[in-house]
């Protein structure tokens, strides 16, 4: 699964993928993860998946448009700091990781959410907090559906600008995630700024099929 990703989306670049319809990327990723289970090969595949998921989760961050999300902490800060701790194979977050979570929240102008329960956030807020959790674990690939989905115009513009600025920094940093962002042709205007940067590539979402 991950080998296919390396082959089709070489590291060191970022990718904008055209979706035939909203949610296509979510459908492809969830199919890749769960198809075998739906086919009834549960007994063998739980073991197979159990073997693959930790590696998948470590190397790939996924921010879906519409998919049930699970949180483990009672506060947003705790959730992000907990993700950072888990990346370092620990359960409890250190003071440094809590500070790092606060910095990430400030960068995304989400400081007012820091003490909120992640299960009580709005749809847009949930997406932003989930994004930060995925971002915090510094995966090799960060896959998102359509960035502005569920976000207000201001929030969406802020997130696209964040990704643009951070992806520039990535040119000289091999630990930076390779971004794979989905878009619908009608909403292409959100990404004009990205495509002017020469390390962004435009391609079809179907390339993701099979990962």
């Amino acid at each position: 699964m991950i080998d296919n990703l390396y082959r089709n989306f070489p590291r060191g670049r970022h990718y904008l993928v055209r979706q035939q319809e909203p949610g296509e990327i979510d459908a492809i990723i969830s199919k890749g993860l769960f198809t075998h289970l739906q086919r009834g090969r549960k007994r063998n595949l739980w073991g197979e998946l159990a073997g693959q998921l930790p590696e998948w989760g470590r190397k790939i961050g996924w921010v879906p448009d519409n998919f049930p999300l699970v949180f483990f902490s009672e506060t947003v800060t705790g959730e992000i700091a907990g993700t950072l701790a888990a990346t370092n194979n620990r359960i409890r977050a250190t003071r440094h990781e809590l500070r790092r979570a606060a910095v990430l929240l400030r960068q995304m102008e989400l400081t007012d959410l820091s003490r909120r329960n992640p299960f009580q956030l709005s749809q847009g807020e949930t997406k932003l907090v989930w994004f930060l959790c995925q971002w915090a674990k510094t995966p090799e690939y960060l896959i998102m559906g359509h960035v502005p989905t569920s976000l207000s115009t201001r929030r969406a513009a802020h997130l696209v600008t964040f990704l643009k600025n951070e992806s520039r920094a990535a040119a000289a940093n091999t630990t930076f995630p390779t971004l794979i962002l989905g878009y619908s042709p009608g909403d292409q205007q959100w990404y004009r700024g990205l495509l002017t940067e020469n390390y962004w590539t435009d391609m079809e979402a179907s390339v993701l099929d099979g990962i």
Partner: peptide, 10 residues
């Protein structure tokens, strides 16, 4: 209808 138009194809 809550946030459903975002899911509607172009």
């Amino acid at each position: 209808l809550d946030e459903v138009l975002g899911a509607v194809p172009d």
